[in-house]
Amino acid sequence: MIRWVLVALTVLTLSACTTMRLGYNSANTLIAYRMNDWFDTSGELEAPARERLDSVIAWHRREELPEYSRLLLGARERFADPAPFTPEQVLAMQKQVTQRLVRTGDKAADAFADLFPRFGLAQRKRVIARMDESNAEFTEKNIDISPAKLRKRRIDDMEDRFAFWFGKLDASQRERIEKWADEAEPSGTERLAVRRMRQTAFLNIMDTGKTASVPETNRKLKAFFADLETPADAGVRERQRKQLQHWAALTSDLINSASPAQRARIQEKIKTMSDDFLTLSRQK
């Protein structure tokens, strides 16, 4: 439940501008559906779960969307500067977004921690079943797949992400993405292991939540979300660092290769999204 609040809000706030307002204004219904799907919040859990969800989304609308708008405007100013981007600057921008993500996780932990003592065997079984389904889907897409198909999907996904901002990519930009895909270390098995490790950690929080104090459960949930930004496991932290650096190098290269028309498009999209965040933040 907590993770879906966090992830869904983040996806909705970073989605395409043309659908963002509609998607964000439907967040309550979307996440409530996913909560019930993952946790079986029907019956006596439905009202308190929905009440807490509504409070988190109201807070996110009021407090976080203006911050996203501010971050975007800062990025727009940087794009107006003709000086080349460095991977370090890209990572600094990404870190600002990740910190907002962790902040949302903290707020969700504050809201939902007192529900954990009310989770029973039905909720645990439902969560395990959904985790298994998610892991099976991940395995199909990232492990049980030929190297050629995996490479193509990575290239297509990355091209789509950059094309949203840049518009049509030129041949040299597509070649750089292909090079990035070829240089990327295979990580499907490692990522699946990390997923399972974090899933086990979450199940432990659910299990101990029956007897632990609400402040203790709250603390564990916040640590769980903080691990997304700074993994406690040294090996996971180092792999994440390398992957982010590889991505940042690609991103800075593509930005620096952008044509004047592409840079203008990026700045316009940033401005539109920033305006949408402010508009959404003022709605009730």
Rank of each mutant, 00 (worst) to 15 (best):
T98F: 06
Q123L: 02
D110F: 06
D106P: 00
V90N: 06
R126F: 01
F116P: 02
R130Q: 13
K107N: 09
V97Q: 04
M93P: 00
R78A: 15
A109N: 07
D110M: 14
M131P: 00
Q99I: 02
F138D: 09
I128S: 09
P84Y: 07
I128C: 05
M93Q: 12
A113E: 10
D114S: 15
A80C: 08
I143M: 03
D110R: 11
K149R: 10
I145L: 13
T104L: 15
T104F: 01
A108V: 15
Q99K: 09
T98L: 07
P117R: 13
Q89Y: 01
Q123K: 02
A109H: 05
L121Y: 03
D106Q: 13
P87G: 10
E140Q: 13
E140H: 06
F85Q: 08
A111Y: 05
P147E: 08
K125I: 02
D81E: 14
T104R: 07
P87F: 06
V102G: 04
D144H: 13
Q96S: 11
E88P: 03
A136M: 02
R100F: 02
Q89I: 07
S146I: 04
F138C: 08
A113D: 07
G105Q: 09
T104K: 02
R126G: 03
R124I: 05
V90I: 15
